[in-house]
Design a protein around this nucleic acid. Structure first.
Lengths: 143, 143
DNA sequence: TGATTTTAATTAATATATTAATTACTAATA
DNA sequence: TATTAGTAATTAATATATTAATTAAAATCA
């Protein structure tokens, strides 16, 4: 374990590599990719939100999101709709099929979140969250 | 900030999004991608290591690494070489050009690591590292 | 030894990431 | 109001990620 292995970026990447397979296994059961899940997860709370809002909320960049939405609408889960008040804006809304997925997927994922949270001690968990918050607010973000 | 935004995966992704641009700006000055940097960073310490070792050390999957090595060797920074003792193994070694990059890039990146580490309090930093370690060892890894 | 099983690297197919450039539209301003 | 500047979405080009399949070379074992 040297300087590089203990750098924050590598620690974050490794942690994601350890944590994500379990979630991806859940998504796969519903033929969803990780990014598609994230988009749906946001739409279930904010149906009809604009593409750029969706990009910010999902941590998927605009250009990537265009493709994700393409495939989600190809699969009949969402629909694109131009905003009437601002013709530049594209609003993404759920189809019936997309809406129905929520109650089947969310419980499984929430349960996985809970298992993950319980896999380490409560103090370690809270300190981890605090540390991540600190890094995010300390860095010179552009938002 | 709901359940989803506070989930560990999204917290990790957001933290990376906040942290990485500064590093990418450094890599760009040397026409390196993030993954190319990681490969070089490992080779500078373990020149000639096997592709799969490199995959594990860089957190880049085997299939992805094949392309990264293709482009690094296209750019004259590394070379592929079959192992003599085991013909299945491909060893990756630095060229003179690849070796020379080290002393120009590493100081800048190490300085960025230090700035990052100092951007939050020492206790928060140590707790963050401890939390990430806890998650990595707690989860049922396959290694 | 010869068949079987593993392993390292690669290929294939599809989905995303990243940065820069474009397009269509809106807002701001002289 | 004609021009200019700014914004939302998309396209383009290139690089990676992910999973499954393939190939070639060990290693195992009847």
């Amino acid at each position: 374990m040297n300087q590089f292995d203990r750098s924050l970026p590598m620690m974050l990447y490794r942690t994601l590599d350890v944590v994500m397979p379990e979630f991806r296994a859940i998504f796969k059961r519903f033929r969803l990719t990780e990014q598609q899940w994230r988009v749906l997860r946001v739409l279930w709370e904010r149906d009809g939100c604009a593409l750029l809002e969706l990009a910010e909320a999902t941590c998927v960049s605009g250009p990537s999101l265009v493709g994700v939405i393409d495939r989600l609408s190809r699969d009949g889960l969402v629909r694109r709709r131009r905003s009437d008040t601002d013709r530049r804006v594209v609003r993404i809304s759920l189809t019936r099929k997309g809406r129905q997925l929520e109650k089947r997927v969310v419980p499984l994922v929430d349960e996985a979140y809970r298992r993950l949270e319980r896999s380490i001690s409560r103090p370690d968990w809270l300190a981890l969250m605090k540390g991540l918050d600190a890094v995010m607010t300390a860095s010179p973000q552009e938002q």
